[in-house]
């Protein structure tokens, strides 16, 4: 009975195109349209799009790996640079210290040397002065003696005892040298 009712309903629906009426022509067109669309899209759209997406994904993955590597490299270089810088600083400090020490010793040496030289010059000068003084004195002594002799001669000539006079003069001269 139930099948009879459904049969009747379907039969009457089929008459003027019901909701569940299947049009075989439409089915054929759907198959044709879908398959043609699939084939064209596969060639025109899916292949280029999907390969492009895959390529971009692999590119991004590669770029990320490379960026990571570059970061690591940069970090290493920075570390190395810092180490180098520290080393250079240390070295420069060492050089400065060394040169300072050297300058200190040089300065001391120079001062010492110049002091010694000055002392030597002063010593030389005083020696020279002494020597000059001595020679001058000797000269002076000779001259004085000569003058005295001349004077004595004059005195003797003035009739005085030359012998006695000389004694007096010598005595006098000795007094002068003692002074």
């Amino acid at each position: 009975m139930l099948t009879q009712i459904t049969l009747a309903v379907i039969a009457s629906e089929g008459g003027n195109g019901g909701l569940l009426d299947v049009n075989p022509g439409l089915m054929i067109w759907t198959v044709i349209t879908f398959i043609i669309l699939l084939l064209i899209l596969k060639k025109v759209a899916w292949k280029p799009i999907l390969t492009a997406l895959d390529k971009r994904e692999s590119d991004i993955r590669e770029a990320l790996v490379q960026a990571e590597k570059a970061k690591e490299d940069a970090r290493q270089i920075l570390e190395q640079n810092q180490a180098n810088l520290a080393k250079a600083e240390e070295e420069s400090k060492k050089i400065i210290d060394q040169s300072r020490a050297y300058a200190e010793t040089l300065k001391e040496q120079l001062i010492k040397e110049s002091k010694e030289q000055a002392k030597k010059i002063v010593d030389d000068a005083s020696l020279e002065i002494q020597r000059k003084k001595d020679t001058a004195f000797e000269e002076l002594k000779g001259q004085i003696a000569e003058i005295a002799v001349t004077a004595a001669e004059k005195i003797i000539r003035e009739s005085l005892d030359a012998q006695k006079s000389k004694q007096v003069i010598d005595k006098y001269l000795n007094d002068v040298t003692k002074n």
Partner: peptide, 20 residues
């Protein structure tokens, strides 16, 4: 089989063309 394109066939083609 009646293979006359119907309204739905025409709009199916329009959709297919737009997709393409």
């Amino acid at each position: 089989i009646d293979v006359t394109p119907t309204k739905h066939v025409v709009f199916m083609w329009i959709a297919a063309f737009l997709v393409l």
